[in-house]
Every structure is written in C-alpha cells, then in structure tokens.
Design a protein around this nucleic acid. Structure first.
Length: 160
DNA sequence: GCCAACGTTGGC
DNA sequence: GCCAACGTTGGC
C-alpha cells in the first residue's frame, strides 16, 4: 500500500476553551466546533491519520505554539452540530448529510516553553507562516515541512 | 477594550 | 450575482 507523505498543520485553540494542558491530561481529543468551510474541507478531506499538528494558543497570554499532536482519526461528522444543547449546535447540519467535520488528535509533546509570535517572526523560515499573516483567522492551517522543522529547532533552542 | 479583517446572510 | 449589514475572530 502506497504510503502518503505526512502533512503538517496548525490548529488554533483559545486556551480558555481547550488548552495544551487539557490535551496533556486527556491524551486524545476530538477537534470539534470548527464552523468554517475552508477549515471544514481540510478536516474532512486533507488531514489524515499520521499527520502532524502544531497546537497554537490564540487570544491568550502568550499567543504561541505550545506543543504538538498527531492525527489519530480521519475526518468524521462533528456530532456537536446535532446537539441542541451544545454551543456549536447548527440546525442546518443534518446527521444524514453532515455539514461539519472533525478529526481526533493525540498529544505528542508539550513544549518546555511556548514559541511566541515574536520568536516566530524573528526566524527566517517561520516568519512566513500563515498564522502570522495579518487578518489570518483560519483556525486550521497548512504548515510546510520546513516550517515544522524550524518550529522544532526553536523549541530546542529555547531549552538552553 | 478597540478595531481591522474576514466570512456569512439576506435583500434586491 | 451584487453588496451592505452584521457577527466573529483575534492581534494589539
């Protein structure tokens, strides 16, 4: 069976809602509540088991990449859209024709120190990351292999 | 708290 | 199909 090349992604979360520490505690989670079509398409079609994820804290102090995770379940319907009591309930998502999707991820590592936006901006490679672009609101973003590696170098450098 | 950027909605 | 109004995101 031909093996697909690993793809890399960045997932944003407000730590108030779900933080890296929550993921460390839970080990795995389903990435529910995404209600944006571009992000939905990636969750449904492009993000596959074995892909690697940068975990980013938005609207936080500090705003930073705080760890990594691995995708352990391909896209499947986001059941929180069917739950009237859920914050992300969407009456237009039909269980027979779901509108929203999610993947499952598992903690890989929590960085010893957060990789802040300033740190990302100062590095030649990570300075080009989508998450730094003005007005970048997409909560699921593709990351290049070079960016992935550069973030890890920053994480190691930070340990010194 | 402010507000620019962006996505969605709905009238026409 | 256009686009103004509106709501949300998210950095600062």
């Amino acid at each position: 069976m031909a093996k697909r090349k690993t793809h890399y992604w960045l997932l944003k979360s407000e730590p108030n809602a779900y933080s890296i520490d929550d993921l460390v505690k839970d080990r795995t989670t389903h990435w529910d509540g995404v209600r944006n079509y571009q992000a939905r398409n990636m969750l449904r079609d492009e993000i596959l088991v074995g892909d690697k994820v940068l975990f980013y804290h938005s609207n936080a102090d500090p705003m930073a990449i705080v760890g990594t995770a691995t995708v352990v379940q391909n896209g499947y319907p986001d059941h929180t859209a069917f739950d009237k009591t859920d914050k992300h309930y969407d009456e237009k998502s039909d269980p027979d024709n779901p509108r929203w999707f999610m993947v499952d991820i598992e903690i890989a590592q929590k960085f010893a120190e957060p990789i802040t936006r300033d740190m990302l901006r100062e590095n030649e490679i990570t300075a080009g990351m989508m998450v730094l672009a003005k007005g970048s609101r997409l909560s699921v973003q593709p990351v290049t292999e070079d960016e992935w590696k550069a973030v890890h170098k920053l994480a190691k450098a930070k340990l010194k």
